[in-house]
Nucleic acid binder design. Structure first.
Length: 231
DNA sequence: TAGGCCATCTGGTCCT
DNA sequence: AGGACCAGATGGCCTA
């Protein structure tokens, strides 16, 4: 983790995160694609079940070869930076029995591996698209490791939010049954909420605190580490 | 210029 | 046998 990424993460306010949390949370529950979703295949979990996701990924895997690699079978559109090593002769294994066949096989394997890594990167891009962080063009893309760690913390945070919501609903339901003399439908919502806030044992700021603590800590080296602890 | 990040190649291992 | 997955090595690009 470098300073650049830490600054990026710190730049995200918890308000923004909570806002995004609400929207992405809905999407994750299947109420529609998240903001900015360009295609269902890009956000498979938002539109359908895990099985659909796997199907989409399998199909995508087949097509992505075409998207990324016109080099697929020939294996010749390699990164120009790596061309030297890609075509260099192995000093340990000079001209063997069938060098041409072996070379062809090696190129095919390389192309497959390249395709596989491209698919992996596509998946990471998909992950970046659905986790809350600054998506503006002026902000650098999250690194792979930052993406994974932020996604993990985001999932943990969502779980906590869900749990807190459940407790709140249970608490409000309990209050309804106790004060049945006053029809709950007539109770001003604001007052109800205020009363709940006054008595409700679970702080509404817990989530924001978790965001601060888990994802956007100012401590450079400890970034992302806090929530590796049990929530 | 050092360090971080990344893409690619490569050989090994496991699975179908 | 062929493909998927993995980890190590290598070298390029970018930023502080």
């Amino acid at each position: 983790m470098n300073a650049r990424e830490e600054n990026l993460l710190k730049s995200i306010s918890s308000d923004t995160l909570l806002d995004l949390t609400q929207r992405y949370g809905q999407a994750a529950l299947g109420f529609g694609p998240p903001h900015g979703a360009s295609s269902p295949a890009r956000f498979p979990l938002a539109s359908s079940a895990a099985a659909d996701f796997l199907t989409a990924q399998t199909a995508k895997s087949g097509e992505s070869g075409g998207e990324h690699t016109s080099d697929d079978d020939d294996g010749f559109e390699v990164d120009s930076r790596k061309q030297g090593s890609a075509f260099g002769e192995d000093p340990k294994h000079p001209a063997s029995k069938k060098p041409k066949e072996q070379r062809s096989l090696r190129l095919s394997i390389n192309a497959r591996e390249r395709r596989r890594m491209h698919d992996l990167n596509d998946a990471l891009d998909g992950l970046r698209a659905v986790i809350p962080y600054a998506h503006s063009p002026s902000v650098r893309k999250l690194s792979k490791i930052a993406t994974l760690l932020l996604a993990k913390n985001y999932i943990l945070m969502q779980g906590q939010a869900l749990e807190e919501m459940r407790r709140l609903v249970a608490y409000l339901n309990q209050g309804q049954t106790l004060s049945s003399a006053v029809p709950s439908a007539l109770a001003p919502f604001g007052q109800t909420a205020a009363a709940a806030a006054a008595v409700y044992p679970f702080s509404g700021t817990a989530l924001a605190a978790c965001v601060e603590k888990c994802s956007y800590s100012a401590a450079p080296s400890s970034l992302f580490k806090h929530c590796s602890d049990k929530p």
